[in-house]
């Protein structure tokens, strides 16, 4: 453990830190890299399409791939629940959510973007931190009923200023619910820097106030993120309660496609962040172990590009929502007034 308390397995150049012994086998790491590359490729493609007016507003994961993928790898999607915010695309895919449905949601067609019934995953959340009490209730409910499963919920350092964050951590501590709070500290809440959010040394330090452990990890280090998360998952599975993980990373792109970081971001900071790119780090590590090469990199990128292309084509072919669907899933049964409004809309 380095002196500053931030857990790291790989240094920024991809070399194992002295004394570090990676727990993940190479095949598993390679699988992680595959998700990271898919995520990065999707962000570039979607940004290009958005700039051409062919895609809606979205928030890229760029720079946070190790943070999202490394943490998600520590869960078992068959039993564990994912409670997302909105900047965790590879985690949704790892849970089995089809990329085409993600694209449909971003394109304003949530009807076709419904989460399949067999996936243990809640919808994305843009009312920030509002998902956290849902995650706690879900974990607590599993615990009450003696059902298996751990809950992970994602949010950012900005969201952790919301009251919902504090109420949720407090309730999780009191109930001992099996949950992992995964805070991605990407240094920015749109234009608001990390230093404006909290005077605490680490966001994870707040866990002490709720009576459970907080861990800080280098969020650009896939191996470290996995290890720290796995430890928290195991704790929760053993019935030892919640953990707050602060994953220190960097938002290497805009907040979303409407944002212009040049108004508030020092280009030097971005340059420094790019030198700590999580994908390059894990590529270097695998290359060192003879598991990665230029050919492999090309091959993986080509597969990712094809997967994205296929999903985009499939999304274009999805049925467009029907007007009547405005009135679907409001209640099990519409009120008489809603039913009358539906008839009015449909000209019945």
């Amino acid at each position: 453990m380095p002196e500053n308390g931030v857990y790291q397995v790989l240094d920024p150049s991809g070399r194992l830190r002295e004394g570090a012994k990676p727990v993940l086998d190479d095949e598993f790491v390679l699988e992680g890299l595959r998700w990271m590359l898919l995520s990065r490729a999707f962000d570039s493609k979607a940004t290009a399409l958005q700039r051409q007016g062919r895609f809606g507003v979205f928030s890229p994961v760029i720079g946070q791939e190790a943070s999202v993928v490394g943490s998600a790898m520590a869960f078992e999607p068959r039993t564990d629940w994912l409670v997302p915010q909105y900047r965790e695309l590879p985690a949704y895919l790892m849970w089995g959510f089809p990329l085409v449905k993600h694209i449909l949601n971003l394109s304003g067609n949530p009807v076709a973007g419904r989460i399949p019934d067999d996936l243990k995953m809640l919808p994305t959340q843009v009312s920030l931190a509002a998902q956290l009490p849902h995650a706690v209730g879900l974990a607590w409910g599993l615990q009450i009923q003696g059902k298996e499963g751990v809950v992970v919920t994602y949010f950012g350092e900005g969201s952790s200023s919301e009251g919902d964050f504090h109420e949720s951590c407090n309730l999780a501590g009191v109930t001992g619910a099996p949950i992992v709070f995964f805070l991605q500290n990407n240094q920015w809440a749109i234009s608001t820097p990390r230093s404006f959010q909290s005077a605490a040394r680490y966001f994870a330090d707040r866990a002490a106030g709720y009576g459970f452990p907080g861990r800080v990890v280098d969020g650009n280090d896939l191996l470290a993120v996995y290890e720290v998360t796995k430890e928290a998952v195991d704790r929760a599975r053993r019935g030892e309660g919640p953990t707050l993980i602060e994953s220190i990373t960097y938002r290497m792109s805009f907040h979303n496609t409407t944002d212009n970081p040049s108004r508030y971001q020092d280009p030097k900071d971005l340059e420094e962040a790019r030198a700590r790119d999580p994908i390059e780090r894990i590529e270097a590590y695998l290359r060192e172990r003879g598991m990665w090469s230029d050919e492999k990199a090309k091959e993986y990128r080509a597969v990712a590009a094809q997967e994205i292309e296929d999903a985009l084509v499939e999304a274009q072919q999805a049925p467009r929502p029907e007007p009547a669907q405005i009135f679907e899933n409001v209640f099990a049964e519409l009120t008489p007034r809603q039913a009358a409004q539906r008839r009015e809309l449909l000209g019945e």
């Binding site: 809640l122 209730g137 879900l138 607590w140 919902d164």
Partner: peptide, 15 residues
């Protein structure tokens, strides 16, 4: 907020 918010999760869990 967490009384109502956790009720959402409790319901999703089957309660």
């Amino acid at each position: 907020a967490s009384i109502i918010g956790s009720s959402i999760g409790l319901a999703i869990s089957g309660l």
